[in-house]
Write a protein that binds this DNA or RNA. Structure first.
Lengths: 142, 142
DNA sequence: AGAACTCGGATTAAAATAGTCCGAGTTTTT
DNA sequence: AAAAACTCGGACTATTTTAATCCGAGTTCT
């Protein structure tokens, strides 16, 4: 349990490679081959990173991706959020996070919410987990 | 991401209810109805908790379950392990944990292991997550 | 014009998770 | 002794989530 989605791993590994390449541009193919990740998957990942502003892209021949250093100085927590991933150990915690994103979830997101006697404890753990991700900087990883 | 399996939630909620019932025995049906969890699922959960020694069972009419206080004084981390759940944020971390259980996994459990440049950072985060679960006692939750 | 790229929607495959079914055994009650 | 009220546990099915692929289109360099 508690596995990160592969798309997050792919994103982090790709960002790391771009960071090491410094100003040099790398194509999705370059990255895919060096890491051993399927090209199509890498391409998709790069596009998402592009849309979120973590990398800059250059289309066409001689094109490729380079790191956008301006936007990498954030916490892993914020990075995950931007990648549409929210670390939430139980459903009722997830709904709280989603609400920040203006989704229409209530705490009743969990069908057991009313009779649940462990939610306070879960909330405590949730906070500690969040703390770990908030304390970790993206730049420490890549 | 990072959701706990429902079977863990069910187990914790059930243990909490048994704890509150103190010495009184509760049937799977009692627990299922009060919590709103399907009976079959609750029954399965209770059996697992029984096999692991967290609860004592009495078969037949007037039977049911009661908490085995002797075995509840452990960390949430150990509880999860016994329930066959290992909090591991990435595959290569998971393999390490599995090895403690004498499974035949290597670090190559992850196909990207060799070229992966983020595994050290992931390991650091993994350790912090583990710490949270090791510091939390089962008795604090139930 | 052609080669080498990125863009992004749509689809499909695979895996993990959750829930159900059902026959059997045990203990109390009538 | 039979019925009722339970637990036991294997096998199965459904659902959801996650991962991977397909493919037509647009951009830039040579």
């Amino acid at each position: 349990m508690f596995k990160m989605p592969r798309k997050i791993e792919y994103a982090l590994m790709s960002l790391q490679m771009l960071n090491q390449a410094s100003l040099k541009r790398l194509t999705a193919k370059d990255i895919a081959e060096k890491l051993g990740i399927p090209l199509q998957v890498t391409a998709k990942t790069m596009q998402q990173l592009m849309n979120l502003g973590f990398v800059k892209s250059q289309e066409g021949a001689k094109g490729g991706y380079s790191l956008d250093y301006l936007n990498t100085d954030i916490s892993l927590y914020d990075f995950l959020n931007k990648m549409q991933e929210t670390p939430s150990i139980v459903k009722c915690q997830h709904s709280k996070i989603e609400m920040l994103h203006n989704e229409t979830y209530g705490e009743e997101n969990c069908e057991y919410f009313e009779n649940c006697k462990i939610k306070n404890s879960m909330n405590l753990i949730q906070k500690k987990i969040e703390k770990v991700f908030k304390e970790t900087k993206l730049t420490e990883i890549i």
